[in-house]
Design a protein around this nucleic acid. Structure first.
Length: 104
DNA sequence: AGATTGACTGCAT
DNA sequence: CATGCAGCCAATC
């Protein structure tokens, strides 16, 4: 009998619901879960193991861009994956949330 | 067990 | 418009 789901697992559940070509902000995910805050979402994703089946690359900050992180190589990978899904970055290296934000 | 950290966000200056 | 600070709370040491 499994124990109660951790916050991390709740985040994984919501993130896995994001369709390709769309993105969600940290705060939006926290609100969708109904518990925690944007920071907790970011921390949860930081603890995800490499090769996770979770589309964590579809999670961006409220600006539609990639937040600065401990491992810059990972942010680059996130951009590459989003480009591969057909999203387009503007000259500020940010996405247009008015078009790409996933609205449940 | 308690202290520190951090992939955020909004408001103030 | 840029920069600073406070609040949020699980995960980690």
């Amino acid at each position: 009998m499994p124990s109660q789901p951790t916050f991390l697992q709740k985040v994984e559940l919501v993130v896995s619901q994001i369709p390709a070509g769309k993105v969600m902000t940290y705060g939006q995910i926290a609100q969708c879960i109904g518990e925690g805050t944007a920071r907790l979402v970011g921390m949860a994703l930081s603890s995800l193991p490499t090769g996770s089946s979770i589309p964590w690359h579809r999670v961006v900050n409220v600006k539609g861009g990639i937040s600065p992180r401990a491992n810059p190589q990972s942010s680059l990978e996130q951009i590459q994956r989003l480009l591969g899904e057909g999203l387009q970055f503007n000259r500020n290296q940010e996405l247009d949330l008015n078009s790409y934000r996933f609205k449940p």
